Computed example of a mutant assay.
Amino acid sequence: MEFVLPICILFMLANVGACTEVRDVGTHIVSLANAPVSPLSLSPAPAPAPPPAPHFVNITDVLQQAGQFKTFLSLLKGSQVENQLQTQANNTQQGLSLFAPSDTAFASLRREYKAMINKLTDQQKTSLLEYHAVPTFYSLGQFQSLSSPISTMGPYKFNVSAFGAQVNMSTGLVNAPISSSIFSQSPVAVYEVDKVLLPEEIFGLPIPTPAPTPEPVSAPESAMAPTDGTSAKSPDSSSDQSDAAYKNAFVIHSVLLMFGVFQVLLW
């Protein structure tokens, strides 16, 4: 009996502790269940990178790097057409086709046309420059299917004809073939032409080519011309000399006849 009581007391104490632990765990679970739930915070997704800016072709740089368009560039510099060309080149929907005359093309202009270009008004110079640009990108292959005439950036038009790889521009005054492709990548094409495109509306009717001056024809030398360096005598001078000899002979004959009559009288 002495051992039973302590054992019972220990058992009861153990049960009380277990119950206390269970009660504490339950209380903790209830407190967690009743606690307010905060919404989950998600970090924002990074914004997409902006698309790269379009690369625009600088028309002036293309002509300068080519090197053979100094005269054409001198006309463009400071004019409103320079800005118009660049604006059109930046238009990725339409683009630009530029037909640039080389320095050789300007040098080979006829003197009359050079004088007319130097006397053009500012508006006429603008129209002349605009005449060399088409507000659409055309590759060399696309010229095969173009119908003439085609519109330029100015008020005038010109005709285009293509024969195989050869593309020719016709203004009514000049025929200018494309001699080379300087730059061709959509939306910009720059082509070299070996003649200046001259619109009839500015330069009028074609200037006629003067007929060649005939070379003077030297008179053929007479077959009887002397070979000792003396000049040949004309038929008129020979006739005059014959008349003079006849007169001299007649005078001498008359003198002799009178002398004979005088001798007879003396006898």
Rank of each mutant, 00 (worst) to 15 (best):
S43C: 10
N248T: 13
V22R: 14
G95Q: 01
C19L: 12
T27E: 15
P155I: 00
P52E: 05
A133V: 04
S238Y: 12
L140S: 07
D103N: 13
G26C: 11
C8D: 14
S151I: 04
S74N: 15
M116K: 15
L76M: 09
E215T: 12
P135E: 07
I207N: 15
T20E: 14
A219W: 06
K70Y: 08
A223I: 11
Q185L: 07
V190G: 02
V37A: 13
I117K: 01
T27N: 14
P208S: 14
L98W: 04
G172V: 07
P220T: 05
F3K: 12
I202P: 01
E215V: 09
K114L: 11
P101G: 01
D243W: 05
A211G: 09
F106A: 04
Q144Y: 08
M258V: 11
E201H: 02
N248Q: 15
F259W: 09
A89E: 01
A133L: 05
K119P: 11
F69L: 06
I29V: 15
E82T: 09
N15Y: 03
P208W: 12
T87L: 13
Q88M: 07
N91H: 11
P46E: 04
M12S: 14
L40S: 07
F106G: 05
F143M: 04
V217P: 00
Q65Y: 14
T104Y: 07
V4I: 11
A244Q: 04
P214G: 06
L85P: 01
L10H: 05
R111Q: 15
I29C: 14
D243N: 06
Y156C: 04
N168C: 13
G67D: 06
T213C: 11
L265R: 11
P226F: 10
F259H: 03
R110C: 03
T104F: 07
T20Q: 15
M169R: 00
L98Y: 00
E82R: 07
L98P: 03
A232P: 10
G26Y: 09
V25M: 14
D228G: 03
F72C: 04
H28V: 13
S161V: 08
M1V: 09
P51V: 03
V134P: 03
A18M: 05
L10T: 13
D61C: 09
Q65C: 08
A165C: 10
T71Q: 09
I182H: 01
D240N: 00
T71S: 15
